[in-house]
Design a protein around this nucleic acid. Structure first.
Lengths: 209, 209
DNA sequence: ACCTGAACACCGTTCAAGT
DNA sequence: ACCTGAACACCGTTCAAGT
């Protein structure tokens, strides 16, 4: 019957998925666990630490070894895996972005990116910087994508469901055709831009040497 | 003696610069303006709207016309200008990132990036996507850079000032030489990676056509 | 038109005291 | 070791009533 650290974490993840980050309060979490708010502070020193543990759990398996031998495919695989992990939980991207803002340095996702960069032939300092760049892109893109999707899900319920065929896309429309296109497409484009940039740098380097 | 919308905005910016985003509360703002909390709600419907107005003010002049004719220099100039604007206020990057997460679409900084991309010769949808990618990078980098700088400023005051010469850099050190190197250098690297990526895409396009 | 007074419905965190 | 009870010091927002 006793509460363990893992139970608190599980409860927090459950509230996140069902009600979102804004509704994840220590008091609500305590209630859902049938315990007084103060009890949580025996298991976690503060809310920030709990959020950090949640972020770690969300990213648990993104740093697994990559399947491809090609460095570019490897980077793409890692980036896709990271995005998928973030999208797997409500407000997942926002939570991770907020938590990792202060501790970008010690970050499993970044480490993996660095490894892929080094394997690509980038000098280590370059790989470090490239990893940051990619991480910024993936986090930024995914936060945006997720908040947009949630807004739309909210609007879809609020709006009068006129005809089910038109409600999928092209609502805000205007003339920017690509803006509310498949987020996957937009993600892949940015990723390709990044990989092309790395490739260009590699070419420059080998020509210089 | 009457409070105007602009006064509220000015007061909010002053609190931001002096105490940071976390200490910018409606109640504190009201007190600093010599007014009851409720009074603020006559000028702004809620805190979120006020934060949005602050973000707009921070980015006021980033979309000014660019000096260079070269598209790559133009993009670099815009990116640098955006970074500088974010760094000009305490927690400026965090505020803008948080506020613009939901309204990435209507964003003056993005518009400028799109323009530069189109001038570069990118098809418009590509330019749109490239603009997002760059924006994600600049915001992500600058949020990180600023929070890091503020942590260090805090640590510099807390830590025993042993010898003034060693406190500048290379503290966390380890073997990652570049990590706490000049943020400007790291920023320029990521920017170069992006521009190289765009260049590569342009080359591919012209070869295909 | 603009603001006060006062409340409503919350927060995160601490800590003596209990078991 | 783990939790309760109860408090402390706050929040954002609303709204009748005042001027």
């Amino acid at each position: 019957m006793q509460l363990r650290r893992g139970d608190v974490l599980d409860g927090a993840m459950a509230i996140l998925d069902e009600y979102g980050l804004a509704d994840l309060t220590m008091r609500r979490l305590a209630t859902s666990l049938g315990v007084q708010p103060g009890a949580l502070y025996w298991h976690f020193p503060n809310k920030q630490t709990l959020l950090g543990a949640m972020a770690d759990r969300i990213l648990e398996r993104v740093d697994a070894p990559v399947s491809s031998e090609q460095w570019d495919d490897g980077i793409a695989e890692l980036a896709h895996r990271l995005r998928k992990a973030l999208l797997a939980h409500r407000d997942g991207a926002e939570l991770v972005a907020a938590t990792y803002a202060s501790r970008m340095t010690s970050n499993l996702a970044r480490e993996s990116f660095v490894g892929a960069g080094v394997r690509a032939g980038l000098p280590r300092p370059y790989a470090e910087l490239a990893a940051y760049t990619l991480l910024y892109f993936v986090l930024g893109h995914t936060v945006d994508e997720q908040s947009r999707a949630q807004l739309e899900a909210l609007g879809a319920l609020t709006r009068t469901p006129a005809s089910p065929d038109t409600e999928t896309a092209a609502d805000l429309g205007s003339d920017d055709d690509f803006l509310d296109g498949d987020p996957q497409v937009r993600f892949d484009f940015g990723l390709a831009l990044f990989i092309d940039g790395v490739r260009a740098r590699l070419a420059t380097d080998s020509r210089t040497r």
